[in-house]
């Protein structure tokens, strides 16, 4: 730990600075169908992190040479709004956002039956409107709900969370201070039904045993987030059903 603005300790009297237990998620809310123009969309609020994802497609591929004969071209764009960070973020892609867009695509692709939509594009646009750590994992949760909301056939939703280490403690769902001044950060995404890992990154220093514990802790937390994702989809269809007079579970 160190640097300017670093708190003296990240764990005080067995609690985290935001009052959470070590294996406690921040409060999470997910809602589907929030962008009218999109074929599917979702918003996730996880603590202070707030992200909107919108899916367009399957639709014509642009530019044309991205077209793939035997499957859909999955395109993911992760973007941070200029006002989402403490200091203004310069609009447009950065090296960080290009890499995150790529790993999000690699995380979502295993869940999507891309082969069912040859020669089309499925575009996933992600906008971080307020960032307080864990944006790539929250983005994955929102994006997979948006894909399902767009009616795109999927093997499962993709659920993600980051865990890490700060003050020597293994912690679930890091918030900004823990992320900036902690020892390690490990974003992970799974398809909850099979537990297959679709995204795994890590930076920091942990032992092999600690890495195994972090994976286990994140995978368990993903099951909880998974329920919220399914609830968001269910609520949207119930509301739609009510509007057309066909409400039924």
């Amino acid at each position: 730990m160190g640097g300017i603005g670093a708190p003296e300790k990240l764990i005080v009297k067995g609690k985290r600075l935001d009052g959470r237990a070590f294996d406690e998620l921040r409060p999470i809310q997910i809602k589907a169908g929030v962008v009218k123009n999109a074929d599917g969309s979702a918003i996730i609020v996880q603590g202070e992190t707030k992200i909107i994802a919108a899916v367009y497609g399957p639709r014509e591929v642009f530019p044309k040479h991205f077209q793939e004969a035997d499957r859909a071209h999955l395109n993911c764009v992760y973007d941070m709004a200029a006002f989402s960070t403490p200091e203004r973020a310069r609009p447009g892609p950065s090296r960080r956002s290009v890499e995150i867009s790529k790993v999000i695509r690699d995380a979502l692709a295993p869940a999507v039956f891309l082969e069912k939509y040859p020669k089309t594009a499925i575009d996933v646009y992600i906008e971080v409107t307020n960032a307080n750590a864990g944006t790539r994992v929250a983005a994955i949760c929102a994006a997979s709900v948006a894909l399902a909301d767009a009616g795109i056939e999927m093997r499962d939703l993709v659920t993600a969370v980051a865990s890490g280490k700060a003050d020597g403690q293994l912690l679930l769902d890091l918030f900004e201070l823990e992320d900036n001044y902690g020892e390690a950060d490990m974003p992970l995404a799974i398809m909850p039904q099979t537990g297959e890992i679709t995204l795994l990154q890590m930076d920091g220093e942990v032992s092999q045993d600690e890495a195994a514990k972090l994976i286990e802790m994140s995978m368990q937390a993903c099951q909880k987030i998974y329920e919220l994702q399914k609830k968001a989809l269910r609520e949207k269809y119930l509301a739609e059903g009510a509007a057309t007079g066909e409400a039924s579970e």
Partner: peptide
């Protein structure tokens, strides 16, 4: 034996046991 960075890539998956 300290692990200091990880990165998964590609459209496939890994099981937890495979990662370990």
């Amino acid at each position: 034996g300290t692990v200091c960075a990880m990165q998964k890539g590609g459209f496939g998956t890994f099981t937890k046991d495979e990662v370990l």
